[in-house]
Design a protein around this nucleic acid. Structure first.
Lengths: 209, 209
DNA sequence: GTCTATAAATGGATAGAC
DNA sequence: GTCTATCCATTTATAGAC
């Protein structure tokens, strides 16, 4: 093996990930190029070698979200396509999986936090937020319900309405307990607890009478 | 009547409302004191006469939210205490009232937009957001359900779970369609439509069998 | 690919006149 | 209560050496 320096390769990706960390915590505007440099041990000009300007870092991150969405889409399919058993436990498992494996996924979570801020003023960010936080998970939940209806487990036949009802519970608990200055284990535990409670409740109302 | 100049009294409140408008659109950090001055036709020093610093404007606005919460609390009581009839239309009316009269209330909406950004990095803003967007509406919904249970309209006896299930639908549709760079009439119409659809669906599952 | 140095602009904040 | 003028820190961005 050759003597190449494997420690501290400050490539584009490295810079983007540090930027994402900071953008997620403080927002794009509040973070200066110098702030991004510090943890990397770099100077500003090193950043400007990789990116045209500060905006370029954000644009690059937004492109990264699009890739992430595609990746997550295939991961979802692998995770949920087999779980076509129906019980309140199974429904809770799907919901907790959506929380733990997606919304709280280290990169997805930071993207959501960053976009939560940016989407209010920027069309570009709003578009990405919509896809990441609403379209993809809703489409996924819809598929789960379509399957359940197909197999005769469920009475009603509007999978997109059911998806919205169920995902609303997950999204609500997530927003209420997991978005904020710090994400603690207690917050996550409380979120799961609330999702489980509401999930079981709504499941009992919905199941084949 | 005396010849006092009634036009353009640029008092503290005037400055705060202009600041709120801008903070809601771009976030606290992204708005400069000069930005606030422009629409008011003032100079920076005029602002610093009324406020100790830029942060002082935000602090003042946060205090204003607390007053608003108290005011809204009493308005809610007046609006919902009589509506103790139970039907899917009545439930939808309560939900649409929560959207139209509260979440989309001109001032409340701007406060929510501003706090959506600030609450991610600031404990103070997070606290206020929690009260304004979660605690107050949930408490209110809970009271409506407690009444309905009291009068024997509803089977289940966990009003706080029901409140969360119902309010989650409202909050979800609001976040999905009404938060972003511009709020159009189409967005609002779509939000109402989605709330109505999900509300009726969940109501039919819930009502006395 | 990263550094030093520096230009140019922006933004928070104050002093003192009116 | 608002204005002019000004100060100073921060920040974006670039030029040119290594």
């Amino acid at each position: 093996m050759s003597e190449e320096k494997n420690i501290k390769i400050n490539n584009k990706e490295n810079i983007e990930m540090t930027a994402l960390e900071l953008f997620a915590k403080h927002g794009f505007q509040a973070v200066s190029v110098r702030d991004i440099c510090k943890p990397l041990g770099l100077r500003e000009s090193a950043i400007y070698y990789h990116f045209a300007n500060k905006q370029g870092i954000l644009d690059s991150l937004l492109l990264r979200v699009d890739q992430l969405i595609l990746q997550m889409k295939t991961e979802f399919e692998a995770a949920f396509s087999e779980a076509a058993e129906v019980s309140d436990e199974a429904m809770c498992a799907v919901a907790i999986g959506m929380l733990q494996g997606y919304l709280l996924h280290p990169v997805v979570y930071k993207m959501i936090a960053m976009l939560t801020i940016e989407r209010i003023s920027t069309y570009n960010a709003q578009d990405t937020y919509q896809k990441l936080v609403f379209e993809l998970p809703l489409k996924q939940m819809e598929m789960v319900f379509a399957q359940m209806i197909d197999k005769g487990f469920i009475v009603r036949n509007a999978p997109e309405v059911l998806a919205q009802e169920y995902y609303a519970i997950i999204y609500f608990a997530f927003q209420k307990n997991c978005i904020g200055p710090e994400l603690t284990d207690e917050n996550i535990a409380l979120t799961k607890q609330e999702i489980n409670k509401n999930m079981k409740d709504i499941y009992n109302k919905m199941k084949q009478r």
